[in-house]
Design a protein around this nucleic acid. Structure first.
Lengths: 265, 265
DNA sequence: ATGAGGGTTTAACATAAGTTATTTCGGATT
DNA sequence: AATCCGAAATAACTTATGTTAAACCCTCAT
């Protein structure tokens, strides 16, 4: 089913047709984190092959299970989340195209959080062994994955700050800035707008706010001329002011890749 | 200065005098995550050697710097934190004895958060190369570090839930449950009490609450007979009820180590 | 076209938590 | 013992955000 050579030969052609960019968001993302050879890209294309469509609001990994595969998001938005007994839930992170949820965690104990879709998604299930194989054979890919992990951790830290000490409007503004940059990095944003089919309830689960207050806050952002919403899109009208409002520092999303180093562990 | 053989020969003797437990909290912690040989323990003792005392409320790593060494806490409590421009700060995690702040992050870009002491601490500075050496030569140690990292990530997720959807009293109760278990794991708690020289302001920076509200909340916990404080100690009087209040699930701190697996990446 | 259902908006009200300022306490230092 | 200082406690008041419930509005499927 997967012809390595076929992929390897077609990839450059496909990319050249697309302005030098791969259509595989995983490639797009990792390219930004480490130099990739043609063979590296080819293996990533294989990992992304065989994607399936998933409905919105559906679980891909249930809390307490022990999955033996990673999930790679190719289209749409998924999230990690945890439920509390009283029904509240906290979204822990967004998985955008090119992001993957690796199953390492589950190999210590059962996984402590769920993975679910927010919007309709295209998702590839990557067996653990396939991922290991790719990483072992392709040091640059391994390097890029490690760097992706480091960025992910930085994002999580920023979310802690968001929840711990920003006001409602700052939280949402910060989230939108982050999403714009991350989506731009994988080619899923035009100018300063992107598809954003996330409900206000889900935004509340993300930012620790009630849906009613999310609504109020979105209105305020619109009133200030910072954003516009509609047709499941988010349009950022004034990025500089939005960033200022959120005290958004982009650095954590864009590691200086030229920096050599980071060859270890 | 560091005699490997000397260490290797004395370690078991020392441990036998101490009821089978090493006095090195790093060993204590990693023992719980992977089987360690005598040589493994010896190298960990070397890493922990040369510790220095650090005053309370002092920075070990400044935000924006690029440290080339890890810091290992042997005694006391340190934390990672971030500052906002308006002076607010968010504590991102606690570093208890046996925990270390590795410098990987800084090798992509400058580090995006600071490392500082809360209490007076004993801290060992571990040069990057020494850490790499230990990990390369000692696969079990590497394994244990990987597992420690996974637990650390689980703790962070729990903190996100704490900030995102728990009430003040639940946040603090949950934090106390977590700290008790983590400190017990490294032998820094007797029964259900431990040294806890953290101010109410710092507790507020941890839980996203004002110091005044932290004070109110601590009083409520005392009034309910759940905790007692004094002489820089925290005494948990009724752990079952405290856990119930916080909906505390200990699983994420205690990975099932018998599970083989997790050999990769 | 018509309805059904999920998502959004609005409104009125409740409350947990923040703010500011003052006082008290307890452990160091002289 | 007297003083000092940071931390803890108290008090009075403000406010951001939560809650509940109803109305509205798309979008999709029949």
């Amino acid at each position: 089913m997967l012809s390595m050579t076929g992929f390897a030969m077609n990839a450059p052609l496909r990319r050249s047709l697309l302005n030098g960019h791969s259509s595989n968001p995983l490639v797009r993302k990792l390219e930004g984190l480490a130099p990739l050879s043609e063979a590296d890209r080819s293996i990533l294309d294989q990992l992304a092959a065989g994607a399936r469509l998933a409905d919105p609001h559906v679980d891909l990994i249930r809390e307490g299970s022990a999955p033996d595969a990673a999930f790679l998001v190719l289209k749409g938005i998924a999230c990690r989340y945890k439920h509390r007994q009283d029904g509240k839930r906290q979204i822990l992170s967004y998985l955008l195209p090119g992001d993957l949820c690796d199953p390492d965690i589950a190999h210590l104990s059962r996984i402590d959080h769920a993975l679910g879709t927010l919007s309709a998604c295209s998702v590839a299930r990557i067996p653990r062994e396939a991922l290991l194989f790719a990483v072992e054979r392709h040091p640059n890919v391994a390097q890029a994955f490690r760097r992706a992990k480091i960025v992910e951790e930085a994002v999580t830290r920023e979310w802690l700050v968001n929840l711990g000490c920003r006001s409602a409007i700052e939280r949402i503004a910060h989230l939108f800035c982050e999403l714009l940059l991350r989506l731009q990095a994988v080619g899923f944003a035009e100018n300063d707008s992107f598809e954003f089919p996330v409900t206000q309830v889900e935004l509340g689960d993300t930012t620790g706010l009630s849906n009613v207050h999310v609504n109020r806050t979105l209105q305020e952002l619109r009133r200030q001329g910072l954003i516009a919403t509609g047709q499941r899109r988010l349009i950022i009208l004034d990025l500089p002011r939005l960033r200022a409002l959120a005290e958004f520092q982009a650095g954590y999303l864009q590691p200086a890749v030229g920096t050599d180093l980071c060859t270890a562990h």
